[in-house]
Design a protein around this nucleic acid. Structure first.
Ligand code: MN
Ligand code: MN
Ligand code: ZN
Ligand code: ZN
Lengths: 136, 136
DNA sequence: GATTAGTTTGCAACTCAGTTGCATAAACTT
DNA sequence: AAGTTTATGCAACTGAGTTGCAAACTAATC
């Protein structure tokens, strides 16, 4: 618990019981999960509390959100050093077979040449295909 | 009307009055529009009919859909030659000021090196920033 | 330790995009 | 014209996300 607590406090999040539970669940995931995924990891839970917990985590840059086009936002832990700046952006992968969404944390989003007078703030890049698990 | 009709029939879509109207509206747009945007271009209209019209158009590859992260799918005309294959994919741009979504039809999505055993079917890339209109 | 002030949680209720079912209307087929 | 297929319109629903408010909890002060 101490480790979980530290992770929270280092991001300026008050370590409540609820938040520790949520962070633990997020930590043990190999893939990004949605609010309703998270909800189902509890026997009894309140969607709104989980929703606000995720919002807080995202605001404090403990997690980042991924819009993979499935209609439900997914969330995944940020790296310790992440400040959610452009240089922290990476490609995400959605597997059409297992329907899981992964961070490709090592693959930075390639820069592109925009038309004149266009300026960039943020880029979302989601690759859809079949993951290594599902490609036998 | 003949031109509109041809566009529809060449994509194997029966040219009804409704569909002609929708195609005309889509043709005169400089940016991608959502279902509810489209709905508001009519004085009296049925959302479901427009919804199904867009679905049909997309299925027949007359238009393509864009998930720009705003929560409402946007639609834009495909080029004549478009078959919605990977080589037809292009970058989309969402302007944080005017909130408009544009096709950057001339900017192909850069290819990336995925981890071993990952295969690609599709890529969604949305750049967010400020468009040339809104940059002074 | 009781009092207070600020924060978090739980419940209900709502919004909004997208979707389905079904009955009517319109368009083709014979 | 009668029958068959396809398109349209209306109602009703789903599911993700969101807000308001009161109760529970925590932290700070006396
Ligand atoms: Mn990620
Ligand atoms: Mn486009
Ligand atoms: Zn997979
Ligand atoms: Zn703009």
């Amino acid at each position: 618990m101490k480790d979980t607590d530290d992770k929270l406090t280092s991001r300026n999040i008050k370590p409540t019981a609820m938040r520790e539970l949520v962070l633990d669940i997020l930590t043990e995931q190999k893939m990004a999960i949605s609010l309703s995924d998270l909800e189902q990891k509890f026997h009894k839970s309140d969607k709104v509390t989980l929703y606000r917990t995720l919002k807080t985590f995202e605001e404090k840059k403990l997690i980042h959100s991924i819009d993979d086009g499935t209609g439900a936002i997914k969330y995944a832990l940020c790296k310790e050093t992440c400040q959610c700046h452009p240089e922290d952006l990476h490609v995400h992968f959605f597997c059409l077979k297992c329907q899981h969404t992964f961070c490709l944390s090592d693959i930075p989003i390639p820069s592109i040449n925009l038309p004149v007078n266009f300026s960039v703030e943020n880029i979302n890049m989601v690759v859809k295909g079949v993951c290594s698990n599902c490609n036998d």
